[in-house]
Design a protein around this nucleic acid. Structure first.
Lengths: 120, 120
DNA sequence: AACATCTACTACGAAACGTCGTAGATGATT
DNA sequence: AATCATCTACGACGTTTCGTAGTAGATGTT
């Protein structure tokens, strides 16, 4: 994902509803002066990459993020982990790099797994 | 990192010592038929991206990975986490996606932190 | 001097991206 | 119906990254 693409995704994630091209364009106006069609192209490319989905709303399309921002982040973390040779080592390094707060969140998330023992 | 770049990095990670362009080229011979200069270019680009470092060895350069594979993986995990809006949520999703074995490794890595309470 | 080996520099095509313009369809307005 | 506003579809062009490699020139070897 390029920078502009990320910026656009952030608008979608920040919005509670699906947005039209025009809406995204407006929300970006403060940050970046872009042609309407530029936003359209980016949204379209994101859709082709399955990062956004779109539905009709009258004449226009409404786009929304295909997945929550946190899910994408989790997926990317997985991808990164998959590329490590030694997972244990990678996880140790990752954990060693994380802040205290994040470590606590991780423990919490792990303990949440205990009860349900992978029932999905 | 592109595919070829990754392939080359893998050679460096697999080797115990720094490798010359020729050595990388030879090790890749089974997998990919590449011109010697292609390997040279890739190695050079990787060096510019700080993914490899090089040192003189007579007339030739010897390249080695700037960081262990697992460290790069951990860094990428961090980057991914940093791009999540809600870290807690991202970590929960990440943990939920991980295999039982990986969860165990994570717990292990976290407990290892307990004793040293971030003394670095 | 001739040959082998390396690096440096250059190059070129493909793909991803940032950035838009134009054309044409459709709906609203006069 | 003619006009205007709003959208989309499609194409386009420059830049960067990457895969791929050739050529020139330096240097060491025979």
């Amino acid at each position: 994902m390029g920078d502009l693409e990320r910026l656009v995704m952030e608008q979608l994630w920040a919005a509670s509803t699906a947005l039209t091209v025009r809406e995204v364009h407006e929300r970006l106006a403060g940050t970046r002066e872009l042609a309407y069609t530029t936003v359209m192209t980016v949204l379209d490319r994101l859709a082709k990459k399955k990062l956004t989905e779109r539905e009709r709303d009258g004449k226009a399309w409404r786009y929304r993020a295909a997945a929550p921002r946190e899910e994408l982040a989790a997926d990317l973390m997985r991808d990164a982990l998959d590329r490590a040779g030694d997972r244990r080592e990678a996880l140790v390094r990752f954990v060693g790099q994380v802040s205290d707060e994040e470590a606590a969140l991780l423990r919490e998330a792990l303990s949440r797994l205990d009860g349900q023992e992978r029932t999905g």
